[in-house]
């Protein structure tokens, strides 16, 4: 009787997995086709499926990056990313967030320094797309509240809210969906949020971005306004607050007691 080459399931699976991870590795021993023929093409289907499935997951998240690079270049980039960033589980929803950093440091993409931030915007968009639901407050609720009390409040921001800053006009590049000409450096600040069904990418200015950043870090409106005023002495707190509420980015006002207000 022939000795069992893999008495242990774990050892068999480890060898199988290793052969999937290394395209140059030989096919694992002990795989049989009818008549004892070679199984190379048969095993290759699993190699292709695992690789193409991972690339497809990245392409789904990065449609604009794919369009900007062209699908072949995007697939090459995804393959290179995959070599050092393998999925840890079969659940690809949680995987691939490192692609923008990979793009940023990829030598072949150095002539397009804004690409990484386009990819970051796509990651933010995707996170907002899948984030939990929450009902934004109406403007009336803000208007009805005592202004002193509002100033001392923190805001519970929508769970889908993401803040993104770039030295490049990435929102425009992203919105143009690959139809771009020369790109000139121009800083852009964005609030990404999905108050209802659709993800919104909302441009803001440097001070407005500082305001939203301070609020999302848990600061009171008063504290956030002073962070914004440090950048723009004419910062209009009321207008920016109304803007965030109108955008649907605010889920609740959370009044803070006097003694905690500076916390």
């Amino acid at each position: 009787m022939r000795p069992d080459p893999f008495p242990d399931h774990g050892a068999r699976q480890a060898a199988f997995a290793a052969a999937l991870l290394d395209a140059g590795a030989p096919v694992p021993d002990g795989l049989l086709a009818p008549g004892g023929g070679p199984v190379g093409r048969r095993f290759a289907v699993h190699r292709a499926t695992t690789t193409l499935g991972s690339i497809a997951a990245l392409a789904t998240r990065h449609p604009v990056l794919e369009r900007l690079l062209g699908s072949e270049t995007f697939a090459d980039l995804a393959r290179a990313f995959l070599r050092t960033n393998r999925p840890r589980t079969a659940l690809l929803l949680d995987w691939g967030g490192g692609l923008p950093d990979f793009v940023a440091t990829h030598p072949d993409l150095a002539d397009w320094p804004w690409l990484a931030d386009v990819a970051r915007l796509e990651v933010a968009w995707n996170e907002a797309h899948h984030a939990a639901e929450a009902e934004p407050i109406e403007l009336a609720e803000l208007v009805a509240a005592d202004p002193e009390r509002v100033a001392r409040s923190r805001l519970v921001l929508h769970p889908s809210l993401r803040l993104l800053a770039s030295p490049w006009p990435v929102a425009g590049i992203w919105a143009a969906n690959g139809e771009i000409e020369a790109v000139e450096a121009r800083a852009e600040h964005m609030v990404v949020v999905r108050p209802h069904a659709d993800v919104l990418v909302h441009p803001t200015d440097t001070a407005g971005f500082a305001f939203a950043t301070a609020l999302s870090a848990g600061g009171t409106i008063l504290a956030a306004a002073s962070a914004a005023a440090a950048i723009d002495p004419d910062f209009d707190t009321g207008a920016h607050l109304v803007g965030l509420v109108r955008l649907g980015a605010v889920v609740a006002l959370e009044p803070v007691e006097e003694k905690d207000a500076d916390a």
């Binding site: 893999f6 399931h9 480890a14 997995a17 840890r88 079969a90 995987w95």
Partner: peptide, 25 residues
């Protein structure tokens, strides 16, 4: 089928040997 092993995930439905050991598992 299986789709992850040793800290790696594979977006595929991978085959397993059919033995008393794998049956138990």
């Amino acid at each position: 089928a299986w789709s992850s092993h040793g800290g790696f995930g594979f977006p595929d439905l991978l085959p397993l040997p059919l033995t008393e050991e794998t049956l138990g598992r």
